[in-house]
Nucleic acid binder design. Structure first.
Length: 218
DNA sequence: TATGCGGAGTAAGCGGATGA
DNA sequence: TCATCCGCTTACTCCGCATA
């Protein structure tokens, strides 16, 4: 019963937003963009290699949404329809990007800058402990450090996944989408979605375990 | 409390693509 | 040619929830 009420609310919300968009209500569009943009960026990042490209893909998707408003028949939720357009744009773009290697990516690992500001060390000719800290780093709160490191490790592991697995785990575990929604957006079967999610989670878990093993004090 | 049902997780196997 | 990776399907298991 509760679910039906929520569903009815979503549908009426969709209708209201849709009606506003169709009469060119700029404010309604801005609200929708603000609400969905972060999620869309995450989904786009599952298909394309960089944030900049993902931003472009999301913009492209919004243009598609505006163009396609008249054709939207309401057979799925507005959100699902928008993410469908987004995944199409992102897939096409991801495919294009995969075939072209940008010059900027060659030698992208810029190691010219030191990891720590040299001014924080004593000069070599210092009379006392040359080369040691002049202003030693203050210890970071351990919990915060661990949480941040874990999030970074997960993000890195997800980046390393094959596109299909990356897209599924992004949508399910980061965006919190329903499995049916993920199947619709990505155009895959329920079973395939489950397997991709399972593999992606296994790999991320393994990645984290390897990191934990490596960081264990010896 | 037992039972049935649906959703989700997991494992196994197959086939296609790709690189050594 | 073979090994490896990945996508896909299928089948099984587990868990939570509703109902008798």
């Amino acid at each position: 019963m509760v679910e039906q009420t929520a569903l009815a609310r979503t549908i009426s919300d969709d209708e209201r937003v849709l009606a506003a968009l169709r009469v060119g209500d700029e404010q309604a569009f801005l609200v929708l963009v603000q609400r969905l943009h972060p999620s869309m960026l995450h989904v786009a990042l599952a298909f394309v290699p960089s944030r900049a490209v993902a931003e472009e893909v999301v913009q492209e998707a919004w243009l598609g949404v505006l163009k396609g408003l008249a054709q939207f028949e309401g057979r799925s939720s507005l959100r699902r329809w928008i993410f469908g357009i987004l995944s199409n744009c992102a897939r096409t773009r991801g495919f294009r990007e995969a075939r072209s290697v940008p010059l900027s990516s060659l030698g992208a690992e810029d190691d010219s800058e030191p990891a720590v500001d040299p001014s924080r060390f004593r000069p070599p000719d210092h009379s006392h402990w040359p080369g040691h800290w002049s202003s030693p780093p203050t210890p970071w709160p351990e919990e915060q450090l661990l949480r941040r490191e874990a999030v970074e490790a997960v993000e890195r592991a997800i980046q390393d996944l094959p596109p299909g697995q990356r897209a599924v785990i992004t949508l399910r575990d980061i965006q919190g989408c329903e499995s049916a929604e993920v199947c619709d957006v990505l155009g895959i079967s329920e079973g395939n979605q489950r397997v991709l999610l399972h593999r992606a989670r296994s790999k991320v878990r393994a990645h984290l375990e390897r990191r934990l093993q490596a960081e264990k004090p010896r």
